[in-house]
Design a binder for these strands. Structure first.
Length: 482
RNA sequence: GGCCAGGUAGCCAAGUGGUAAGGCAGAGGUCUGCAAAACCUCUACACGGGGGUUCGAUUCCCCCCCUGGCCUCCA
């Protein structure tokens, strides 16, 4: 089955056929570096990380570029608030973003260019547009003349009349048409500026992506992605710029991820309705966050709340619990275990690929994973022989390697996962590990004396601290993070 | 107002022209001193409303309702 991708441009799923196979040129709009990133950014980054990984898994040579906007109004404003240089502000939040990306388990893109490194390229495109009569300078600004681009609005499925009617754009006298947008902005006192054929100034927002994508990937991209909110005007404008300048189709497949909602509303910096990635990383293991972000289809809205996150954490725990059991389980008497356990693991690769081929349906993949988890448990319940056990372990490992490679989930050794969970709990709780072990020893003593009242009390006290005791069949007791 | 998404069991969430994955919760069981945890099993007359097409629609078409988004910076 071929990979099918939903293309925002056609509003349909289409077979994926790269322009120059096996190469795939993929450009994703990154962040404006003026603040810490929130979960919405996390979703976009994880979604496109998974797409990147899966394309590579399918054998494509993917060139993945994700930019940083390091010059813009908000950065300048933030710099003024902090009494810092705009460059310092941008660099600080770029580094913070990169930390967040690592923490979330995302692979780094091949290139992460900064807009200000491409001023010359932007100016070249602007000059070309001016030369072609598509853009016009006006009092030190340069505007793109939207009506000169016949298919303007096609991506967002908007026509100019509608846009005009709904326009909330401030009237700017220099603009010939209210829908025109800035390619170059004349310098204002106290703001960063660069020399240009139109005077001192700085670039408009949209032009940077046209410049960076063209320079690094060429004038025609296979995939261009970003959040749904970028469809209009950002991506519409990029299209207008690039196609206006180069007369070539800019992008073959436009991909847009859905929002993360908080309290049922879009998470957004400007409204203050957001949680930063770091806010959430101190509360939950990164893999639970990743799981949560991939538990719905990437185009669907996703509602963040404590209940959903706890479910995600429980789900990830369940998988690792089973993987740990699989690793640690000793052989039984004999037998191969149930047939369904074998077929489940054998069918897994195809089921995985079917789901991912259908517009990167990670939620379906997770469903398939849990079916496998149940079968693994059934298999272990059956007490299979050593040779069968060994073979089964290898097959499971092989099957789940896909999920690790493409979704970045379930790839840790289970012991490491639970150890990290314990450390996490220790870092948040009042008790040290030594104290917990001391309590466990006290409880063991109480149990030996059949003082169950005491032993239960110790257990309850620990439970109140988020610490779960597990009495193993061999008489030992271990603890887990709740 | 225009445009775009989406409305699936208590909650989250896949999916399909021929009566619908998975997770959480719930019930029972195994285990246990008892619990917890873990595992197994089970459960739920779930497809917003109304028309239409069809032998048959939750799945296609139309209308309506509701939610969210975009139309201004935004992943």
């Amino acid at each position: 089955m071929p990979l099918r991708i939903y293309n925002t441009k056609s509003r349909n799923k289409e077979d994926f056929q790269p322009l120059n196979p096996p190469r795939v040129a993929m450009y994703v709009c990154g962040i404006t570096a003026y603040d810490y990133c929130h979960l919405g950014h996390a979703r976009a980054s994880v979604v496109f990380d998974v797409i990147y990984r899966y394309l590579k898994f399918k054998g494509y040579e993917v060139r993945y570029v994700r930019n940083f906007t390091d010059i813009d109004d908000k950065i300048i404003r933030r710099a003024q608030e902090r009494g810092q240089d705009w460059k310092q502000v941008a660099e600080f939040f770029i580094q913070a973003f990169l930390e967040d990306m690592r923490a979330l388990g995302n692979l780094p893109p091949g290139d992460e260019p900064r807009a200000t490194e491409f001023i010359a390229e932007m100016q070249a495109i602007i000059a070309k547009l001016v030369e072609k009569g598509i853009a016009y300078p006006a009092k030190g600004d340069v505007f793109y003349s939207v009506r000169k681009f016949p298919t303007y609005g096609e991506l967002a499925q908007k026509n100019l009349e509608e846009l005009e009617a709904g326009a909330r754009v401030e009237v700017q006298e220099a603009k010939k048409d209210p829908l025109d947008f800035a390619l170059w902005k004349a310098a204002k006192p106290g703001e960063p500026e660069w020399a240009s054929p139109w005077g001192q100034g700085r670039p408009g927002w949209h032009i940077e992506c046209s410049a960076m994508s063209t320079k690094l990937l060429g004038p025609s991209l296979d995939i261009h992605g970003g959040g749904r909110d970028l469809i209009f005007p950002h991506h519409e404008n990029e299209r207008a710029q690039s196609e206006g300048a180069y007369d070539k189709p800019f992008v073959k497949y436009w991909l847009h991820n859905g929002f993360v909602n908080l309290n049922a509303d879009k998470m957004s910096k400007s409204t203050g309705n957001f949680l930063t990635i770091r806010d959430v990383l101190v509360q939950y293991p990164h893999e639970a966050i990743r799981y949560f972000l991939l538990s719905a289809h990437y185009r669907s809205p996703l509602d963040f709340n404590e209940g959903n996150m706890k479910e995600a954490l429980a789900a990830v725990d369940r998988v690792y619990q089973t993987l740990q059991r699989l690793e640690e389980c000793g052989p039984g008497r004999d037998g191969a275990g149930p047939e369904s356990a074998w077929s489940s693991v054998e069918d897994f690769p195809a089921a995985f690929e079917d789901a991912m081929d259908d517009d990167f349906n990670s939620a379906q993949v997770l469903g398939v994973c849990f079916e496998l988890v149940r079968e693994i448990n059934k298999f272990l319940d059956a007490g299979p022989s050593a040779s069968h056990l060994e073979k089964y372990r290898a097959e499971v490992k092989n099957a789940l390697a896909r999920v690790g490679a493409c979704l970045g989930l379930f790839a840790q050794p289970p012991q490491a996962y639970f150890e990290a969970r314990r450390r996490f709990t220790l870092s948040q709780g009042a008790l040290s590990e030594a104290e917990i072990l001391q309590k466990i020893a006290e409880r063991k003593e109480a149990r030996r004396n059949k003082d169950f009242k005491m032993s239960d009390r110790i257990r309850d006290e620990l439970a109140a601290q988020g610490i779960l005791l597990e009495d193993k069949p061999d008489g030992t007791t271990t603890w887990k993070a709740k």
